[in-house]
Design a protein around this nucleic acid. Sequence first.
DNA 1: TCAAAAGTGTTCTCTTTACACCCATGG
DNA 2: CCATGGGTGTAAAGAGAACACTTTTGA
Lengths: 233, 233
Amino acid sequence: MSETNEIKVAVDAIVFGYQQNTLYVLLVKQKFGQMKGTWVLPGGFVLKEESLKEAVTRELQEEAGIKVNYLEQLYTFGDDVHRDPRFRVISVAYFALVNPNNFALVHQNDTDAEEAQWFAIDRIPKLGYDHNEIIKVAHQRLKNKLAYQPIGFDLLADEFPFSDLESLYTVILEQDIDRRNFRKKILSLGIVEETNTLSASTGSGRPARLFKFNKDQYNQLLDEGFHFEIKFA
Amino acid sequence: MSETNEIKVAVDAIVFGYQQNTLYVLLVKQKFGQMKGTWVLPGGFVLKEESLKEAVTRELQEEAGIKVNYLEQLYTFGDDVHRDPRFRVISVAYFALVNPNNFALVHQNDTDAEEAQWFAIDRIPKLGYDHNEIIKVAHQRLKNKLAYQPIGFDLLADEFPFSDLESLYTVILEQDIDRRNFRKKILSLGIVEETNTLSASTGSGRPARLFKFNKDQYNQLLDEGFHFEIKFA
DNA sequence: TCAAAAGTGTTCTCTTTACACCCATGG
DNA sequence: CCATGGGTGTAAAGAGAACACTTTTGA
């Protein structure tokens, strides 16, 4: 029973960002040890007096200078006893989303990682440990959640054209959707509202009206037993 | 960083069983320590050379002599630094289901727990640690999963009358359902098949035809993109 | 005036809901 | 023959899917 002392507890974060029809994941370059130079998920060991959640937010701040706007526990990886070649480590992985406001990375020098960088989901290099596997699990979770929780909005700016929301769904779910039916469906839920703003011109095409997610309204509907769900043909 | 050595890793299992319109949870009486005599979830510390999953199945065997027929990771509880008053412990909780075949408890004497016992979900006593909270989370997961995964069958005998399946749904979801529509819906999924057996008489009423879940068929449909879902009015 | 993206309604199909009476058995 | 639980169909309403042309802007 005392052997449990020899198991180390780590946290890792899979942070998703979305920009220009591309889904990105945040990675950091390992600064120390035999894995120096390898790209891995941001994360690290949990301190004795901090909660798991605190450990993740601390590591994200230290390693990438980033604050996320959605965070939930994903899964705890601890079945492969040798997933870390040095020690027995179990890792509690967290699923996180940032919107473009928080996208920028602060490069502090006093960090665990030499660099932090965004990688397109289909351009992830071979990572250290089992982190490629962890990203797969997180990607699947993202796909699933998109259908029954309004987390798409956490990946967009506060005000966005409808087409951004639509292409976010097509890109992440890798599936075409009908523009008219999608718009009708989303608007019928009553959690997205029109603003008076039009998008700045992008050089071609008609400017789009901007919309925003009404979180208060969503929470109120939740209390009333409302059930968010988006499905496609 | 070395402080992580002082965090202990435990697993706990929430095992659900269903009998006679009642949902049960398996609890064990703590045998040692200052919590001696308190009811808690089966579980214990993870050994250095075993996977998390192995740890759960080992503990369930040792403490209750039970084998489950569904097991999945639920959540890792580690945000309250003092959830165990003795040490910093994080617990990876597992969600498990048994069917009536595996319901019986073997009372070995060489176990961690003095006793193992089934408690109706609405008759759970005050438990040690944060285990009442953990059960709430597991109960919610059970309710959610029932709607989009055919796990109800893991709580029933291999062959069951339709009314058992139906009352399982009403009991766990705490919601009435229309008998005719429910039967139509389930049968239309094509994963439940009729047997030739009729239930033994229970003293009154017409004997029921028994059905069984066709797991192979379900898995095949899954591969074809099938999506299980049961909703109610 | 052309290219590019935004905006918009209707019809058809399928799924979900609501609802009530007869059947088989044991006592 | 009565009490108990098992078994079944239909119609109405709602949700999802399919589908194409007009509008606004910049170049």
